[in-house]
Design a protein around this nucleic acid. Sequence first.
DNA 1: TCCTTCCTACGAAACAATTCGTAGATCAGA
DNA 2: TCTGATCTACGAATTGTTTCGTAGGAAGGA
Lengths: 129, 129
Amino acid sequence: MTANDVSRPTDAELEILKVLWERGTCTVRDVFEVLSAARETGYTTTLKLLQIMFEKGLVSRDESQKSHVYKARAKQQATQRMLVTDLLTRAFGGSTEKLVVQALAAKKASKEELAEIRRLLNELEGDEQ
Amino acid sequence: MTANDVSRPTDAELEILKVLWERGTCTVRDVFEVLSAARETGYTTTLKLLQIMFEKGLVSRDESQKSHVYKARAKQQATQRMLVTDLLTRAFGGSTEKLVVQALAAKKASKEELAEIRRLLNELEGDEQ
DNA sequence: TCCTTCCTACGAAACAATTCGTAGATCAGA
DNA sequence: TCTGATCTACGAATTGTTTCGTAGGAAGGA
């Protein structure tokens, strides 16, 4: 799997990517500390996962220090878009509307969020004319 | 795993559920025929998957005939909502807005769909006041 | 009745994802 | 220098998912 043909990250991989996006760059220990705060997990588990993610091209790393420094290769938004597209295809028959409806039903957005969505809607409908 | 504690269906399971939702009830052969039209797959693979899904409580079955008749236990919308909720949590930090934005960016909805979303938005904002 | 076809059940292989133990290198402080 | 802490690498166990081969039973037609 090359960098340009990255597939859906697994659950554990996504958890790690979230930490990397949040902090920019991380050592294994940095990531481990965040993960282990949320749930029981072992240091070498995190290490192994980052090594695998490196092989897959999901992350890059700087090996110039003793503690390697990892970085997500894809932007958060790009990965989010990939995941939404995947779900759209697998579960919603490609219907963006059905997905959006279920998303809004699943967890009600705040007033501000709804306004933001409305703004986007205006833009999109503007394009269409 | 009981019927009330069903977890995210796997990719293969979701494919089968889609067929069941579409047709209501199906024999293994019915499902197999639909799946094999889309891609190479074996009859006993479909059979085994349906047996596993039955054990997991994802489907029910009528064994009164020689060919068992399967039926999805959860409604399509309920499963869709579960999957969206799952993605919302795993990839979007619970932000419905971010998910909706990415969904609309991923695949542009038609004019009619956008209007439908706008209608829903009006409803939601109405509630809020 | 015998043969073919279709069905279920089931074990197991193949593969992927996750976890962890252990080994060896490096480095800092006593 | 010795000791302990920390790092990477890596093999392997474990668990979950998907695929498929084979066996045995039931049904229908020649």
